[in-house]
């Protein structure tokens, strides 16, 4: 549903994306992976129109994104940035209500359907009991789920997430990613998420797009794409990739010579 063709973007004089071309299929969880500085976050920002110096074409179901206004884009695409800030005293319920902004009229507020949506979003992330709690008083894991609920409450079919499990411990990383995968499986969302951990990618993503130096090095279903050769090429890093009890496991060697291949 999201197609990027020959996309370039730069910060000042520093080019980040060099002719990136890829597509994202509807209803799937696609992991965007690659070494630091390869342009993962920049690509998401370019889709959202936050990179003024960008060229190329990005279309959503065939419609060029730059022709869509902020409000109509917000009705179709939601975005979770890497860092999130919440002012003191803003209650979880107030935060979630803001997500529906693109559907409200100038002086109007949420409709009955919106309210139901907000409740469902909090329910899905397991925070429905904390509606009145200030977001700044939530724990790290709760807060990350609150941001995911806000993205959900926006009711967009495509959700872009920049490192949604950063700053979370192992347990929450799994919990949050399970939740995110559930959004595709049970709620029909299309999700593109920047991830760092190959094992998490292998465990949860359907597809993977591997970036290096602002270009796509490999893309496709996880099992075909997360291979020893691709990982070495993209990350400059040797790792053993094997199947263990039906799950793909990535075991890094670092720069030491690899033992005999599987």
């Amino acid at each position: 549903m999201l197609e990027a063709t020959d996309v370039t973007a730069s910060y000042g004089d520093a080019p980040i994306l060099h002719g990136l071309t890829t597509g994202f299929a509807a209803g799937r969880l696609t992991a965007l992976i690659g070494p630091n500085g390869c342009g993962k976050s920049t690509f998401l920002k370019t889709v959202m129109g936050f990179m003024p110096q960008s060229t190329g074409s990005i279309t959503l179901d065939g419609i060029p994104i730059e022709t869509m206004g902020r409000r109509s884009l917000a009705r179709r695409v939601a975005y979770l940035p890497q860092e999130s800030y919440c002012p003191d005293y803003l209650a979880l319920g107030e935060l979630i209500e803001l997500a529906g902004y693109a559907r409200y009229s100038l002086l109007g507020g949420p409709s009955a359907r919106d309210r139901q949506l907000f409740h469902d979003a909090l329910d899905i992330v397991g925070l429905a009991d904390l509606v009145h709690r200030p977001v700044s008083e939530l724990s790290g894991g709760q807060r990350q789920r609150a941001w995911i609920a806000m993205v959900l409450a926006q009711d967009a079919e495509l959700i872009l997430m920049d490192e949604p499990v950063n700053h979370l411990d192992m347990k929450y990383q799994y919990a949050v990613l399970e939740l995110i995968r559930d959004l595709t499986v049970r709620h029909g969302k299309t999700i593109v998420a920047v991830l760092h951990d190959l094992n998490l990618t292998a465990a949860f993503a359907d597809d993977v797009v591997m970036l290096r130096d602002g270009r796509v090095e490999a893309a496709g279903p996880v099992r075909d794409t997360v291979t020893r050769a691709n990982v070495e090429r993209v990350f400059d890093f040797q790792a053993d990739i094997f199947s263990h009890q039906g799950r793909l496991v990535c075991l890094p060697f670092g720069s030491s010579p690899a033992p005999a291949a599987e």
Binding site: A74, R75, V77, Y79, P81, Y85, P87, E94, L98
Partner: peptide
Amino acid sequence: LILARPLTLITIGAEKAAAAGVN
């Protein structure tokens, strides 16, 4: 007062507000 809701969104972050539909 009319701008209250988009202003609250901007306090959360400019990119987040823009992603939610605020100019």
